[in-house]
């Protein structure tokens, strides 16, 4: 990668683009493994929406393929939440609930702003509304389903909770009221969890030293392996077009 100076808006485009790219990749790993055929369609649909957003956002910062395939792990600025492995279906749904609620609230604000992200956000907010609804409906089914599903959903919500605080850290170039975003997110997620007969998890939003440092290019161990798989073929044929 070249050492072009990164502008403020490129920083924001990369942060949002990497979130979408990485979560799309994780959801793509479900293909052929989903618990029911309707979810094969739904998860792929969400993954495709996110990939579409990622392509627009990365293209605002440079060449989409160079950025996706030729950066090293430390240069990615996605949230640690989205890189977390799929786990069981409950973990995937908890990750979706946390992220899509955040993304929906954020894109809603960006769409209404003067920001250069307004056009993308205006289009994406409609897709993300569906992602959020999908996650909420499944949180209700799993939380208020059987004892087994309740327990799995509870564990998943707790396991991923510590990655949620990072969503409310400032990103250069994204001019939104972070405190209000955080309040709305917490209200919404707490409400869904309560309706799902689950208590909002307690504990810190940022746990260990690195939790919540994805925006600074510090990631969790599974991320490197994910990138190795994602980038391997592209990197094996330098300069080739596909």
């Amino acid at each position: 990668m070249t050492a072009t100076p990164v502008t403020v808006s490129a920083t924001a485009a990369l942060a949002l683009g990497d979130d979408a790219l990485v979560l799309s990749h994780r959801l793509g790993e479900w293909a052929g493994h989903a618990p029911v055929l309707e979810e094969e369609v739904a998860l792929a649909n969400i993954a495709l929406d996110l990939l579409g957003q990622a392509r627009v956002l990365l293209s605002m910062a440079g060449d989409e393929d160079e950025l996706a395939y030729l950066r090293e792990e430390r240069a990615f600025t996605n949230l640690q939440l989205v890189e977390q492995p799929n786990g069981d279906f409950a973990h995937t749904i908890a990750r979706q609930l946390y992220f899509s609620t955040y993304q929906h609230l954020l894109y809603g604000r960006l769409a209404a702003s003067e920001s250069e992200f307004a056009p993308l956000a205006g289009k994406a907010v409609k897709e993300v509304a569906y992602h959020r609804d999908h996650a909420e409906q499944w949180t209700l089914r799993l939380g208020d389903g059987t004892d087994v599903s309740h327990e799995r959903m509870r564990r998943a919500c707790e396991a991923l909770w510590r990655f949620t605080g990072e969503m409310f850290q400032p990103v250069a170039g994204l001019d939104v009221d972070r405190a209000a975003l955080e309040r709305d997110w917490l209200d919404s997620v707490s409400d869904v969890l309560r309706r799902a007969t689950l208590a909002p998890p307690e504990g810190p939003w940022t746990g260990a030293w690195s939790a919540g440092a994805g925006r600074q290019g510090l990631h969790t161990e599974p991320f490197g392996r994910m990138l190795a798989e994602m980038q391997h073929l592209h990197r094996s044929h330098p300069g080739a077009t596909w």
Partner: peptide, 16 residues
């Protein structure tokens, strides 16, 4: 492992 984002989108849409 799709080698470009365009190919990845096409392949995901196809599998879907």
């Amino acid at each position: 492992r799709a080698p470009s984002l365009r190919r990845k989108a096409i392949l995901m849409a196809k599998v879907q």
